[in-house]
């Protein structure tokens, strides 16, 4: 059952209305249409989702672990982006 002639797709499923699509795995298929059909059979056998995306694996650009310091560390020193940075006066109970 080898799949040398097929393409690799990544599958994303939206578990329910109001939630984001989440990566669930990959599969082999010939073309997007078939990939969608198989994604339904392979990843939603227990009604795990209400919407499926499939993307060709080769079309995904990924950040490199090696770049993590330049990518993510710069946001470490910006606590002012978080609400907890701004203490409220005791008198104000909700905001």
């Amino acid at each position: 059952m080898t799949t040398e002639k097929l393409e690799l797709f990544e599958v994303f499923v939206r578990p329910k209305r109001g939630l984001d699509h989440k990566h669930v795995g990959s599969l082999h298929a010939q073309g997007r249409e078939q990939a969608l059909e198989y994604a339904r059979d392979v990843y939603t056998r227990r009604t795990e989702g209400i919407s499926i995306w499939v993307v060709k694996s080769q079309d995904i650009s990924a950040s490199q672990e090696d770049d993590n310091e330049s990518f993510f560390d710069p946001s470490d020193d910006k606590p002012y982006r978080h609400a907890t940075y701004y203490p409220l006066p005791k008198e104000i109970t909700t905001m």
Partner: peptide, 13 residues
């Protein structure tokens, strides 16, 4: 007996 695993699962459904 399917031609590949994905199709095996689909036929099962």
């Amino acid at each position: 007996e399917g031609p590949f695993l994905e199709e095996d699962i689909a036929l099962g459904n």
